[in-house]
Design a protein around this nucleic acid. Sequence first.
DNA 1: GATGAATGAGCCTTCATTCAT
DNA 2: TATGAATGAAGGCTCATTCAT
Lengths: 208, 208, 208, 208
Amino acid sequence: MGLRERRREHTVQLIVAAAAEVFGRRGYHASSMEEVAKATGCATATLYGYFPSKEALFTKVVMDLMGAYLAGVTAALAGASTFEASVHGLFEHFERFAEEQAAVIRVVHTAMRTAQLGPTTSTDEILGLIATYRAAIGPVFDRAVAEGLLAADRNHEPLYTLLLGTLHSASDAWLDVGADLRLGLHAARTLFLAGFPAVAAVLPGESS
Amino acid sequence: MGLRERRREHTVQLIVAAAAEVFGRRGYHASSMEEVAKATGCATATLYGYFPSKEALFTKVVMDLMGAYLAGVTAALAGASTFEASVHGLFEHFERFAEEQAAVIRVVHTAMRTAQLGPTTSTDEILGLIATYRAAIGPVFDRAVAEGLLAADRNHEPLYTLLLGTLHSASDAWLDVGADLRLGLHAARTLFLAGFPAVAAVLPGESS
Amino acid sequence: MGLRERRREHTVQLIVAAAAEVFGRRGYHASSMEEVAKATGCATATLYGYFPSKEALFTKVVMDLMGAYLAGVTAALAGASTFEASVHGLFEHFERFAEEQAAVIRVVHTAMRTAQLGPTTSTDEILGLIATYRAAIGPVFDRAVAEGLLAADRNHEPLYTLLLGTLHSASDAWLDVGADLRLGLHAARTLFLAGFPAVAAVLPGESS
Amino acid sequence: MGLRERRREHTVQLIVAAAAEVFGRRGYHASSMEEVAKATGCATATLYGYFPSKEALFTKVVMDLMGAYLAGVTAALAGASTFEASVHGLFEHFERFAEEQAAVIRVVHTAMRTAQLGPTTSTDEILGLIATYRAAIGPVFDRAVAEGLLAADRNHEPLYTLLLGTLHSASDAWLDVGADLRLGLHAARTLFLAGFPAVAAVLPGESS
DNA sequence: GATGAATGAGCCTTCATTCAT
DNA sequence: TATGAATGAAGGCTCATTCAT
């Protein structure tokens, strides 16, 4: 990559970082390009030299942050050989990531939670992202199956929902009402691990 | 209440119902007063005869729906004498409510999850609402304490978070990716009940 | 038509008149909605209560003015029984119309001359308008045929072009360099009538 | 002219050629400097190394093309000794020129026709250009006078208008509705020559 | 000389809100 | 009370132009 391109890429990163902060704090619709520009330290028009539209910028922000987060998830799970270790790894990664970049969590939550609150067009991409997220945590359940804790021929769907649900509930409480993040995550992990066998037992056979 | 006032109140309800549908479908910022008016079947200006602003309308919508929902929660919990029955009652109430009024859940989620996605000013009211929600499900844990499943002098905060987190994760998955609601709620309840003792055991002493 | 509609229609006419003046003076691209609003005596946003876009307003202006002009053309030709009288009628109508509403001629010329200078989308409508214009002056040549001045089985295309060309050249000179309109039209009419037989004689057989 | 200057002049020509194509196709206002740059094969900023503004570039384009065209006109008229030959020469030159460079005709028409469609400020230059154009075809009428077809002490103004009007009407029809150029020009020339005596007879005495 | 990047000004359009009827 | 109409205040986006490299 030439020098020019590097500089450009750097600027893109600065914009994305500023935009992440703004979008995370105000949501998509309430954020204005002028606000993002001010946060970046440039003129509004400058943003359009890097992104063709507000929506494209938003999508880039979500994709980038989510990509970084998911890469960490994958790495964390790669280093865990048992089901329990996987869950621990996932929660630890989340905690680290959340503390470093609260804004990130905010945008990602915002985006994932509310396809309908973001711009219409990128809905598909966001849904794809949700799918990617679920795929990334798949190894957790592969290990559960390998360890005999979970039958392979069951509908695992609710497990994904619950793992992410308990995980995110802690960060939501942290962001929304200022609850203790570490404690929340600890409790969430405990609940998930302790309740897992019972849930596994009630899952119906694979279907849709 | 005079006849005049009754008629007015009726109109208010019609508007709120229409607004709930619109806000639930599009979110606060993406919804326009014109859209709400069209859904109500009146002119935009008419809305201002009943609500001083878009924000006030939104707040009213959230408050009303949440109030109805919470009344149901309270009723459901009043009729349950044990911890387990309480949890069952809560989930059943939720399921019934969600199926009847998907839009309601959408707005409430939207509102609760993201103070920042709604209008800035009403944040306080929404936070108050969250507190009310938590208070409404308090009886669940009172029963757990009464049954000796939970020590009274512990920080119950994470329990509230987790109960609501598991509950809502199911409806989120239902709304966002079309997951099976009944199955999701069943799994969530199972997880919560089975994992509860373990979580209760790791809760730290009362603090904040 | 109710009173409401009448008032509305009246406002539409006021806007169209103001817009005709502005578009006629500055052309489509150089005119701004703010300028039109100022000429109308209202706020910019008000225009959007009557027209969905700048382009729609422009199209309406052109269509309306052209429609009025063509109605006059048709009427003038209906009252003329000979070829020569037709041509006289056409020129007289044009002169009257031009003096009354110079702006009209400007917009129409602008629009007709340069589909590509107006908004892209309405190009088709403008081409259709050109076709309508040509159709409106058709009777002139029907009479020429009836009087034996013109063979029916010839390509009349160049005649249309020349009749309008001589006619418009006079108004163009009037608008652009301040030439005398009456004199110009007189000369144009004289040229057309005197040269017509010669042109009719050189027209090729009907083809495309 | 040094080598350096020659190279510069060459670049100027490349830009003017590209700009002529763009302005001819889209008109002044709808053309962007970026579009011109792309057509030239250089960066937008580069254009400013050769022209101080968009307007200056437009003016240069018009002046250059018109200059080339008028030089041809002058040459054609110089080689024609009679009135009729002059008119023939003019039309032939026009036909050759138009077929070679349709874009040229487009820009020139655009510019001449509509001072208001080009940039406001250069109106004077364009008016001067119109005057130059008229001067260039002056010899046609000088010959008419010499041949006794036209009285010298009359207002020749309408003749200029009509000669150019008939000429241009053919190319307009060609450009706008795809009419046959050669046929149109033939008809136009025929009309002009055949009708000329009659017009000459009705011209008033010299005045403005 | 050439260009990528930056930007101020401006344009079209939307929308919450007000007001006269 | 209901509403059509009017509007100020943005907001997203474009573009001619400048400047540092």
